[in-house]
Simulated scan of single mutants.
Amino acid sequence: MARVLLAEDHEIVRRGIRSLLESRGNFEICAEAADGLDAVRLAIQEKPDIAIIDYSLPRLNGLEVVKQVRKVLPRIQILMFTQHDSEDLMRDILRAGVRSFLLKSEADEHLIQAVSALAMSRPYFTTRVSETMLATFIGSTTPATQLTSRERETVQLIAEGASNKRIAAELGVSVKTVETHRSTAMRKLGAKSMADLVRYAVRNKLVES
């Protein structure tokens, strides 16, 4: 039986996925997380075979969750579950090691097949996603890929309304380091104000609009 970690901030969606997978009899939901930081903590603690991770998680987005989890659990099979089909997003998550990318609009039809494929260490992509990847996988570097992981985390938390002090506590760094990350991110992105950072975060799906 494959053990599955489910990271999704909407309880009703988690409940639906849990019910769907457990009805098959060969999947066990070993942990559930409602935000990115808990997803990382529970993945390291429970060591699941498969992780289903929503991209738009609070506190730490799905892409950063994948990067942190794979540093500790390089063999984990990950399905990115999202409502966004941005070409840049697909490229970034594949480079991070995600083995399956599933749009929420396609979940009813493809979720069981995707998780079953991952349980056998096989990637799974729908036709719609595969066509987009073929057309866009090799592309120029974008501002999103120029930011470091910590800079993206900082921008996300700023866009979520967190103070420098709270961001420092969340990331385990000093307030001065947070200010440095913010300044560097603003310089790289050509942002002139905090509002510009928020717009960047919304445009690149680090937070929900």
Rank of each mutant, 00 (worst) to 15 (best):
V4Y: 00
L6H: 01
A7Y: 00
H10K: 06
E11V: 14
E11R: 10
V13H: 04
S19E: 07
L20W: 09
L20A: 13
L20Q: 11
G25A: 13
E28K: 02
C30S: 12
A31H: 04
A31G: 13
A33D: 02
V40T: 06
Q45H: 15
I50W: 02
I53K: 00
S56I: 06
P58E: 01
L60N: 00
V66L: 03
Q68L: 14
R70I: 15
K71D: 09
L73P: 01
R75K: 14
M80R: 05
F81H: 04
L89H: 09
D92Y: 15
G97I: 05
S100M: 06
H110C: 03
H110A: 08
L111M: 12
L118Y: 06
A119M: 10
M120S: 12
S121M: 08
P123F: 11
F125T: 03
T127K: 15
E131C: 02
T132V: 06
T132S: 07
M133Y: 04
L134R: 04
F137C: 05
I138C: 05
I138L: 11
T141H: 03
P143Q: 15
T148Q: 06
S149D: 09
S149V: 12
R150Y: 11
T154R: 06
Q156G: 00
Q156Y: 02
L157W: 04
L157R: 11
A159G: 08
E160L: 04
E160R: 06
E160P: 07
G161H: 09
K165S: 07
I167G: 00
A168N: 10
L171V: 01
G172S: 12
V173H: 08
S174F: 10
S174D: 10
E179L: 01
S183P: 03
A191L: 12
K192P: 02
A195Y: 11
D196V: 08
L197M: 05
V198P: 06
Y200C: 01
L206E: 13
E208L: 14
E208S: 14
S209N: 10
